[in-house]
Amino acid sequence: MKHGVWLPLFDPLADPLVAVRLAAEAEEAGWDGFFVWDHLHWNAPVQQAADPWITLAAIAAGTERLRIGPMVTPLPRRRPAKVARETATLDRLSGGRLTLGVGLGGDRYGGELTRFGEQTDDRLRGQMLDEALDILTAAWSGGPVRHRGAHYVVDDVTFLPVPVQPAIPVWVASYPGSRKPLRRAARFQGFFPINLAHPEQLAEAVAAIGAPGPYDVAVALSPGQDPRGYREAGATWLLTDFDQEALDLAHIRAVVKAGPCQ
């Protein structure tokens, strides 16, 4: 199992210099990955939030080995052509270390859809997500992208330069029991279940995906939480999670410097 740090860029972590230093410390301590949340706004008491993409670029330039990425970016509230440019650029800057977490996004915790005039219908956001993933996959190939869908248009554009990786790994996020995201996850390189309550939920999801060959399954657990049941259920990555509404920088730094649990 690989181990990653997973941080919301809120309040004390909204300073990108703090996140870059933590990433360097994580690399030195033996962590395998460093992933950040992608949010525009969060409920109180959170007051500050940093841009994940600019922060990840700084982390990419300041590290050499860590796998990095947004975990997860809500593609339906982003323009896929811009994400194609951002992901290829970040993958090249990091030397091929980008993993892209994707999901529908939601309105529950910070009103990120209603407050910014975004699409709130889950079904339509699912369509937008699938279209955006088709565009990204085509863009990364280096061939001309010709897409005319219900939500996006790309009219014969070639996106160069291409990423370092032949295909940037995509991890699809989903809440437990959601069947359509599991079918979507089976088409890509990984699965990131949100808010798991017990390992049996993970085992059921992994069985439903049925991906052949190497496949990443990431779970988020609090520091010190026993990962053995999740490892047995199919997890390949353990992301160490922290309370987003009570972020203690000293505690986070101590966990990071102690290195990953085994």
Rank of each mutant, 00 (worst) to 15 (best):
E25F: 00
Q48F: 10
V18Q: 04
A49P: 01
F34N: 06
W42I: 05
T55K: 10
W31E: 01
A24Q: 15
V36E: 06
V20I: 13
A29N: 07
A50R: 11
R21E: 14
R21Y: 00
T55C: 07
L17G: 15
I54W: 10
V36F: 10
V18W: 02
L56D: 01
P16S: 02
P16E: 03
A24D: 03
T55V: 10
H41K: 11
V36T: 14
A29K: 07
P45V: 12
P45E: 12
F34E: 07
Q47S: 15
A26T: 06
E27P: 09
D51C: 11
H39G: 10
V18E: 07
A26I: 01
V18M: 02
D38P: 12
D51Y: 08
V46T: 13
A23I: 02
F35T: 04
W31I: 00
W53N: 07
D32A: 01
A19N: 05
I54K: 10
Q48C: 11
A44V: 12
H39A: 10
D38Q: 11
E28H: 13
D32R: 01
A44N: 07
A19D: 04
A19V: 12
W37T: 06
I54A: 14
A19G: 02
P45Y: 10
V18G: 06
A19Q: 08
Q47T: 15
E28W: 02
E27A: 06
A49L: 15
N43M: 12
D51W: 05
L17N: 14
W53V: 04
W37P: 00
H41P: 00
P16G: 04
A26S: 06
R21V: 01
A29H: 07
N43W: 08
D51V: 05
H41Q: 13
W31N: 00
V36N: 09
Q48E: 15
A49K: 12
G33M: 04
A29V: 07
A29G: 08
A49D: 03
R21A: 13
W53Y: 14
Q48R: 15
L22W: 03
W31C: 01
A50P: 09
A49Q: 14
A26E: 03
A26Y: 02
A44C: 01
N43P: 00
A26F: 00
W42S: 10
D38M: 10
L17D: 15
A26D: 02
A26C: 04
V18P: 01
